[in-house]
Amino acid sequence: MRTADFHIEDARGDATVLKLTGDWTTMGLNQAAIRLGESLRGYSIEQVDLSELGRFDTAGALALVQASNFAMPANAFDTRPEAGRIYAMVETLERQSAEPPKRQAPLVRIFSKIGHGVHDAAAEILLSMAFLGRLMGATGFAFRHPGAIRWPAWVSQAERSGLDALPIIAVTNFFIGAVIAFLGADLLTQFGAGVFTVQLVAVAVLRELGVLITAILLAGRSSSSFAAEIGSMRMSQEVDAMQVMGVNPFQALVIPRLAAMVVMVPLLTFVGMVSGFLGGMLVVWSQLDYGPAFFIQRVSEDPDMGTHLMVGLVKAPVFAVVIAAIGCRQGMAVAGDVESLGRRVTAAVVQAIFAIIALDAVFALIFLELNL
């Protein structure tokens, strides 16, 4: 194989001749195409010398078309008609190919991106409302026909999304309670009020952190799992097969997961609260030398602790519905490719965590107005 090369020379004074040498092929072009385009600037090719041209393919033809800007003479390939046919075909395709789209101005791109974002958000809200309507209808059907509930699926989901999450929830809430106790002991001791660290830990864990940390952990763990499981079934057309066989996908896939989360999240929240108490108790014992008996006595003697416990547990079923509904909703929206599955799983986690934090703020305002 000979490397492609060229020479530009004046054959008869004013006639510019382009002489091609070597193999103008994919493997032989190397940098010849780039150099040819730079060398032909300002020249008008009138003759082409192919006496030393070797092999010629579409890559060489494309290089000539782009370098000459479609300005090759009509009789350039008279001595090599087979090369002329290749060149003519490539030139025709290049002329018919669409021009690359013009890049929009930065300001236009910004507003276009905002517009697409608003449109996608509105479409997501509309589809979520449609899913919520179907979910309410399926839930009503399950209440009216308890015998149609798939109890084995419900027990399996309760074990996977509830019991299997018990260790991580207990450990995380333990350390959260310990951190709150560390901060309270360090700050309140400066004002001679270190004993109130017990109330600080109790109120924070019972009212907010116990249920919030539990819900966020389940949003990252169970909501993504629901979206991935149902999404993979959508990709393999198992959901479509259910509908063909007369099985309601909501009754078979969504309701068991929703029921499992509604039952298990309050239980896991209570376990998280106990773990947070243990973490705070250990820190108070080690930092302030207040033993476990003192900690328990201070908590039990406070008349508001029952209210704080009720406030925390009331949020748990609502968060459970949000986690399960968002995970199943994103799973049902998966298309037939893996990229869609990845986007929907990510959206399930992000939307569930955002919804939990937003609902927690709403609950805080409601209980503030109710003076609870």
Score class of each variant (00 low, 15 high):
residue 322 V to P: 01
residue 69 N to C: 07
residue 329 R to S: 14
residue 22 G to I: 03
residue 250 F to A: 03
residue 31 Q to E: 07
residue 224 S to I: 05
residue 228 A to Y: 05
residue 292 P to I: 12
residue 243 Q to P: 03
residue 61 A to Y: 05
residue 33 A to G: 02
residue 239 V to M: 04
residue 367 F to E: 03
residue 204 A to Q: 15
residue 241 A to M: 05
residue 187 L to C: 03
residue 43 Y to I: 13
residue 247 V to Q: 13
residue 62 L to D: 09
residue 38 E to T: 13
residue 91 E to K: 12
residue 160 R to A: 13
residue 31 Q to W: 06
residue 284 V to Y: 00
residue 109 R to G: 14
residue 84 G to V: 06
residue 280 G to V: 01
residue 196 F to C: 00
residue 317 P to A: 03
residue 192 G to N: 05
residue 255 I to D: 03
residue 336 G to P: 00
residue 91 E to D: 06
residue 181 A to N: 06
residue 364 A to I: 02
residue 97 S to A: 15
residue 58 T to K: 10
residue 62 L to W: 03
residue 288 L to P: 00
residue 131 F to P: 04
residue 224 S to D: 10
residue 323 I to R: 04
residue 288 L to F: 07
residue 286 S to D: 08
residue 252 A to L: 09
residue 274 V to P: 02
residue 152 P to Q: 06
residue 72 M to V: 15
residue 287 Q to G: 01
residue 205 V to Y: 08
residue 235 M to N: 02
residue 2 R to A: 11
residue 250 F to C: 06
residue 278 L to T: 11
residue 148 A to L: 09
residue 121 A to P: 00
residue 36 L to V: 09
residue 234 R to A: 12
residue 318 V to Y: 04
residue 242 M to K: 04
residue 218 L to R: 06
residue 213 I to C: 04
residue 92 T to D: 11
residue 311 V to H: 04
residue 332 M to K: 05
residue 192 G to T: 10
residue 173 N to V: 06
residue 321 V to T: 10
residue 14 D to V: 09
residue 186 D to R: 13
residue 255 I to S: 05
residue 156 S to K: 13
residue 139 T to K: 03
residue 52 E to G: 04
residue 333 A to M: 14
residue 163 L to S: 05
residue 70 F to C: 10
residue 135 L to V: 02
residue 82 E to Q: 15
residue 138 A to N: 11
residue 198 V to I: 15
residue 333 A to L: 13
residue 323 I to F: 02
residue 121 A to E: 04
residue 159 E to N: 13
residue 90 V to W: 08
